[in-house]
Amino acid sequence: MNNKTVIISCAGMGTRLGAGIPKALIDIDGEPLIIHTLKMLDKIEDVRVVVGYQAEKVIEVVKKYRDDVLFVYNHNYQQNGTGASVSLAKRYSKKFILTIDGDLLIHPDDMKEILASEQEFVGVCEPSTDDPVLVGVKDGKVTNFYEKNGPYEWTGITMLEAKKITPTDGHVLKLVEQVLPMDFKIIREKEIDTPNDYKNAIIWVQNNYNS
């Protein structure tokens, strides 16, 4: 388990929810979203949180839960994408990097399985959002993104070998595309983008992650 660096990307503004705070800090059933994620990562030694928009607020919340997190600054978060955040955070990492978007809530059982994994994968789910990035699948592996009628949706979760990827300024998919085709894992998660997503995520947690 300790051959993994976990990177949570929280640099973006996430204003679509209109809450005026970074999405990682929105309250889900009494606790900030990122705390739900950090609680699932207690056994991971190398946790890195990429900060940008309202960096100090994110740091304040995270370090109250655990102070041994590496905070990575993405100062240009208004111009660049999550790929830039991951590129910055992957420096001097362990063998594998597990990337998680800061606006994701992952099923705790699936997170356990993810953390136990010893190989690269792309995290996918059944298509569920309004504007999904669908993945193309061939011979049991993900071959490409933006496949029009792809069977699964990309989630924002991937495990990659750090040394195989070249830094990018763009979307995180630009990093993953470098190493396709790759195995995939179906993951139960909620991405929190809209007020409706937010409501559903809260219900999900309150129902013990039964949907």
Partner: peptide, 9 residues
């Protein structure tokens, strides 16, 4: 580039 709050880290 980074902030760290724990000396072991």
């Amino acid at each position: 580039d980074y902030s760290i709050y724990n000396e072991t880290k």
